[in-house]
Design a protein around this nucleic acid. Structure first.
Length: 244
DNA sequence: CAGGACGCGACAGTTACTTCA
DNA sequence: TGTGAAGTAACTGTCGCGTCC
């Protein structure tokens, strides 16, 4: 252990500090004496600060030998150099934390605005899906009512009796599968089934041309609740709710 | 080898002073 | 000219690590 470091440690432990202008009373002084002591505090010169900053750039911690050398070069006490480095590290750390905080805040803001736009998009899609679904239901009800008026003994063949048990497919085999759709009401199965499959088949054929799937058809294929599919896809809704 | 005492350096938090708007 | 805020040198208490006995 070097002489200078012993000096540094002695002062940092609150023991006598011989080198700092009559500060040997430091440990036992009352607050008023301490205040008088610190009145001697002077800011370092620009040149001293420049040198210290220059060293700090390359190494934020000083070896004892280097500390002594630097203190000698700058006409400072080794303890002053040590304290300057400590304070400098603290300033650097708080500055860095401030930067990191700003960065995180920006990221959060970006994420929040993206979430907001996705939320809006989801709502409009849900709305659109609901409209199309209603449209389809109405259309079907009109059709069923029409059939009921022309055919006697037809009952229980409402839209709600449809059960779709097929996977989406855009090929001709897919059409075959669509043929596999069936009603729970056997009596109506034949007539309605052929009509239904023909209608959907046409839609599928059109899809082949445009590569765009009509939403009601999609809904039917997947046999899902239109609001449900979106809700399920939003698996992170719980944490997202925290934002709103 | 375990463990207590001690020295040392670093850090967080605080104080007191200086500077500046 | 007084004042509050910001910057900073210096201090205090504490902790972890290494060394010695």
């Amino acid at each position: 252990m070097m002489e200078g470091d012993k000096y540094i440690q002695a002062s940092s432990k609150g023991k006598n500090v011989e080198s700092l202008s009559s500060s040997s009373e430091l440990q036992h002084q009352n607050p008023r004496k301490k205040k008088n002591k610190i009145e001697n505090k002077r800011r370092f010169s620009d040149e001293q600060i420049r040198s210290l900053e220059c060293i700090f750039e390359s190494e934020s911690k000083l070896e004892p030998r280097k500390k002594l050398q630097l203190a000698t070069d700058l006409g400072l006490q080794p303890r002053q150099v040590a304290i300057w480095f400590q304070n400098r590290r603290a300033r650097w750390k708080s500055k860095r934390m401030e930067q990191e905080y700003r960065k995180l805040r920006d990221e959060y803001d970006n994420l929040a605005s993206r979430f907001e736009s996705l939320k809006n998009e989801k709502e409009s899609l849900q709305l659109e899906l609901q409209k199309l679904s209603d449209l389809m239901r109405e259309s079907h009800e009109v059709k069923v009512a029409k059939e009921n008026s022309t055919e006697d003994g037809v009952s229980g063949s409402g839209y709600n009796n449809w059960r779709v048990e097929m996977k989406p497919s855009f090929s001709n085999e897919g059409l075959e599968e669509i043929e596999g759709m069936h009603y729970s009401d056997d009596q109506n199965e034949k007539s309605i089934r052929s009509e239904k499959s023909e209608e959907i088949g046409k839609q599928v054929l059109r899809m082949d041309e445009h590569e765009e799937i009509p939403l009601p058809l999609l809904e039917k294929w997947y046999n899902v609740d239109p609001s449900g599919i979106l809700d399920q896809s939003c698996s992170s809704s719980q944490w997202l709710d925290l934002w709103t």
